[in-house]
Simulated scan of single mutants.
Amino acid sequence: MALAAGQELRDQLAGQWLDNVLDPDSWHDIFGGDVELLGDPCARADQLAALNGAHVQGCLAEGLLGYRVEVETDEPVGDTIVPGTEGRFATASAVAVVEPRCTFDPPGEDAGDDVLPTLDCEEQWELDPDNLDVLPEPEDLFDVHLAD
């Protein structure tokens, strides 16, 4: 469930970058997670938990680029070989972190306003403001992984 929240955060950050691709001054804030989100990434964790017979007990931002999610099953564990556990519910907790995969240097002062920085991710993206038909996908821009 934490990964679902992290992936939603990644998708929103990538969307913000796409909306501001022609404004490289905003890129540092976007890649650093210092932007206002359009929706709550915890809602995605709630949806995934419900699909898996569980519910989110807690979902909190952990810094600008992470979420801690705690879930509990909707049904008790049931009869097991361990006496007394039939009425207990399974719980889990995890932290997902989003990390930028890209770095960039602003173009030199001589470059002019119509030159975009080169994104250096696992591959380099030479961005042409007059031809933005091929842009990186969210997973090219940001990595999502469990941290705890």
Rank of each mutant, 00 (worst) to 15 (best):
G15Q: 02
G66V: 09
A49R: 02
F31S: 11
C121T: 08
L116P: 11
E139Q: 13
Q7S: 03
L38N: 15
G32D: 14
A147H: 10
R44W: 02
D143L: 13
D34T: 12
L65M: 15
E137Y: 08
L132A: 03
C102M: 03
V82R: 07
A147V: 12
I30F: 07
W125N: 09
T85V: 11
R101I: 08
L116R: 14
F104S: 04
W27A: 01
L38F: 12
Y67P: 01
G53K: 11
E122D: 15
E62M: 10
P24K: 10
L65H: 09
P136D: 04
A2Y: 06
L51S: 10
D79C: 03
E86N: 01
D19S: 15
R44Q: 15
V98Y: 01
D128Y: 07
A90L: 14
V134S: 12
D19W: 06
P76F: 11
D40P: 07
L146A: 07
Q124M: 08
R10Q: 11
A43L: 14
L60Y: 05
D140Y: 07
G112R: 09
L18S: 14
C102L: 03
E123R: 15
D114N: 13
A96L: 00
T91Y: 05
P136S: 07
A54H: 01
C121P: 01
L132H: 05
E123K: 14
L9A: 00
M1S: 13
E75F: 02
L64G: 03
F31Y: 12
Q124P: 00
A61P: 14
A54P: 00
D114C: 01
E109N: 06
D133A: 14
L37G: 06
V144A: 01
G39D: 15
E109L: 13
V115P: 04
I81T: 12
P106W: 07
Q124I: 03
R101P: 06
V69L: 06
N20W: 02
L135Y: 03
P117K: 05
L64I: 03
A50Q: 10
V71W: 00
D143G: 05
G32P: 03
D23W: 06
H55K: 14
Q57I: 09
D40R: 13
A4E: 04
P136K: 05
D143C: 01
V115Q: 12
N52V: 07
C121Y: 03
V97Q: 11
V21M: 12
D120W: 01
G108P: 09
V134F: 09
G66I: 08
S93K: 11
D110F: 08
T80M: 06
L135C: 02
E137S: 09
Q57V: 12
L60P: 00
F31R: 10
E122G: 11
D19A: 15
S26R: 15
V97L: 07
F104R: 05
F104N: 04
L146T: 06
R10P: 02
D29H: 05
V77S: 03
F142W: 08
D143Y: 04
D143T: 11
D133T: 13
P41Q: 10
G39M: 15
E109K: 08
S26V: 12
D128A: 08
P129S: 07
R88I: 02
A45Q: 10
W125Q: 08
